[in-house]
């Protein structure tokens, strides 16, 4: 455990140092993050200008979902995506060999190998949106709701990570996987909306097949106090099942790794 904490810290240090080696880039990316957050809010504000609520979701409740979405996207674009893009490149060049030669779990080592540190702006932005939404709502969550909201944020992060790791496991066989990653990112984008705004079949798809609902809608409902205990259990259980499945996919992929030739 101590080794993994040291490893994650060392990787963060190296990655942050690499990012800061290009100072102008660092500042620009931070500013761009702010612009993106603003743009992400725009469709929601336009929609709720026209109507009070959509399928039971009003503007401030939907803003909480956007807050969750922005924070999780910060994790995705700040840690998961850079790391897995790096993994795909390493599989193609055979440099993954050097990861597999280390006495640490390769999945942990590659999952947090690269960071985009300026995404911390997005993470803070997401939290600010949630706070703003709660203030607008005029109703602060109880301590229990807050604890559930934080716990389900973790569950959502695990569910999202599992989807991406399963996709990365595929890249061992397919090697060129950029398009699948783009598709997954596009699907993830729907998580900015509460799952209930989608019509029937889509809602089923986003709850059970590509469980986007686990990532943002249910955690937001947890914070707002509208999630049933069964829903909370389902969110945690579902994310853990996804984690186990993605772990199995990863292990199968490592067993079949053929390494690029010298």
């Amino acid at each position: 455990m101590r080794r993994y904490v040291a490893l994650l810290l060392a990787q963060f240090r190296v990655s942050a140092a690499a990012a800061m080696a290009y100072r102008a880039n660092f500042v620009l990316e931070g500013l761009l993050s702010l612009v993106w957050i603003g743009l992400a809010l725009l469709p929601l504000l336009v929609l709720f200008e026209q109507r009070e609520s959509v399928n039971g979701w009003d503007a401030s409740a939907s803003l909480v979902v956007i807050g969750y979405f922005t924070s999780l996207r910060a994790l995705l674009e700040g840690v998961v995506n850079p790391s897995l893009n790096d993994l795909i490149a390493r599989i193609r060049t055979g440099e993954l060999d050097y990861v597999l030669l280390k006495p640490v779990d390769a999945q942990i080592a590659v999952s947090a190998s690269h960071y985009a540190p300026w995404k911390v702006v997005d993470l803070l932005g997401g939290i600010a949106i949630i706070v703003w939404a709660l203030v607008r709502r005029g109703e602060m969550p109880t301590a229990g709701q807050l604890a559930l909201g934080v716990m389900l944020f973790g569950a959502g992060a695990i569910a999202m990570y599992s989807l991406w790791i399963a996709c990365a496991a595929l890249s061992f066989r397919l090697v060129r996987l950029d398009n699948l990653m783009f598709l997954l990112s596009a699907v993830f984008d729907t998580a900015r909306w509460p799952v209930h705004v989608f019509p029937g079949l889509w809602r089923v798809l986003f709850t059970f097949v590509v469980p986007i609902a686990l990532i943002t809608t249910f955690p937001a409902m947890g914070l707002l106090g509208t999630l049933t205990p069964l829903g909370a259990l389902g969110t945690v259980g579902g994310s853990l099942v996804m984690l186990v499945l993605s772990r199995l996919a990863w292990r199968a992929a490592i067993r079949g790794y053929t390494s690029a030739s010298s």
Partner: peptide, 17 residues
Amino acid sequence: WDLPPSETFALNRAMFD
């Protein structure tokens, strides 16, 4: 690639404990 080798060494130190 972008960093001095000493950074890679520090990373390996953590990995090999």
